[in-house]
């Protein structure tokens, strides 16, 4: 699908969307269509040029922004969204695989299959045939941990209900209980994260879903913050800082250097002539460092700080004793 086609498909959806939601805020419409506001305004201006021959005033699209809201008066037959294409259906079906392949989510999987079935049922025969031909060639494998808590998380996200969770924090190495306001469910590198506002710390946090041991719905309903993007927050939360806090220096053996290069940004890396690779980190937790280095089983070591290197050795001696 070329850029032109993507653009036209977006515009053919934009007009019916505004027709249905008259006075939709510009910012909301931009977010829904995955565009920035300036770009959306340009497209709205462009749409004013569109109409039907003989292009008399009554033949032109009349779409405009007023007081930050978007209106359409003369939609020129573009009152309905075009049908799903095979690729759009495929996009939904692959996304649905995130849930339907998890055996423990039988109810959710059934609901998802039924929903997809309804969409497939609405397709013209040739679109459906194309979808079925293509669908065997694209797959999304769910993450190892799956999402056994999906039903309760879904309900909390949908109804904006607070959740009381029991969560194992790797950073602290202990289980804590806290009340959170769920804002989004996101997948990164095969790991599910719940992005939620932590009421105790009064700031958004990301929780690995596999480390949430229990989650109970509370009666409290909350107002989600406007304009908060869970995905962008999570990306920032998963990015390691490059300045400030305690400095940690790790050395990786040449055989794992390439693996390391793909996991850290260049600002963290220092090459050595012998092929080993140093990684300089700031303000990372002990648990993060110990876990990263331990997993490589001797192909990495902690150069700084010395006490953390000693702790890793002590832990390893203790673990070794269990194999005696």
């Amino acid at each position: 699908m070329s850029d032109l086609h993507d653009r036209l498909r977006t515009l053919l959806l934009l007009v019916p969307y505004v027709y249905r939601h008259r006075g939709v805020p510009l910012a909301e419409l931009a977010a829904r269509l995955g565009m920035d506001e300036a770009g959306l305004e340009r497209e709205i201006d462009f749409l004013l040029l569109v109409g039907r021959p003989p292009f008399m005033p009554g033949d032109m699209l009349d779409i405009y922004v007023e007081g930050g809201r978007v209106f359409v008066d003369l939609p020129q037959s573009l009152v309905k969204a075009p049908r799903f294409t095979a690729a759009e259906t495929l996009a939904l079906a692959t996304a649905a695989q995130l849930f339907v392949t998890d055996e423990r989510l039988a109810d959710a999987a059934t609901a998802m299959r039924v929903a997809l079935g309804k969409i497939l049922g609405s397709l013209p025969a040739e679109t459906r045939a194309l979808f079925e031909q293509l669908s065997a060639h694209f797959a999304v494998l769910p993450s190892g941990a799956g999402l056994p808590l999906l039903p309760v998380l879904r309900q909390a996200l949908e109804e904006h209900r607070e959740l009381e969770i029991l969560h194992y924090s790797a950073g602290k190495g202990q289980v804590t209980r806290r009340v959170v306001q769920p804002l989004g469910l996101q997948l990164r590198g095969g790991v599910w994260y719940l992005v939620a506002h932590c009421t105790e710390r009064d700031e958004p946090r990301a929780f690995r879903v596999s480390r949430i041991q229990t989650a109970a719905l509370c009666e409290t309903i909350f107002d989600p913050p406007a304009g908060f993007e869970p995905g962008a927050f999570l990306d920032a939360a998963l990015t390691l800082p490059t300045v400030g806090g305690r400095r940690v220096v790790l050395r990786f053996a040449a055989e794992v250097a390439r693996w390391v290069r793909e996991r850290y940004r260049p600002e963290h890396l220092q090459d050595s002539p012998d092929g080993t690779l140093r990684v300089v980190l700031h303000d990372v937790s002990d648990e993060y460092v110990l876990t990263t280095v331990a997993a490589l089983g001797g192909r990495a070591e902690i150069l700084e700080p010395a006490e953390l290197a000693e702790r890793l050795r002590a832990e390893a001696r203790e673990a070794l004793a269990r194999y005696a």
Binding site: R32, P82, A91, L92, A95, F99, L157, G184, L187, G189
Partner: peptide, 28 residues
């Protein structure tokens, strides 16, 4: 709710080849 949860998670799948299709499909 399930379609939107799965869809919004899939939008972030490390540059999904269906990103644009998914946005359009969810709006449809």
């Amino acid at each position: 709710a399930l379609l939107f949860l799965a869809g919004s998670a899939a939008l972030d799948l490390e540059g999904s080849p269906f990103q644009r299709d998914l946005v359009l499909a969810l709006n449809k």
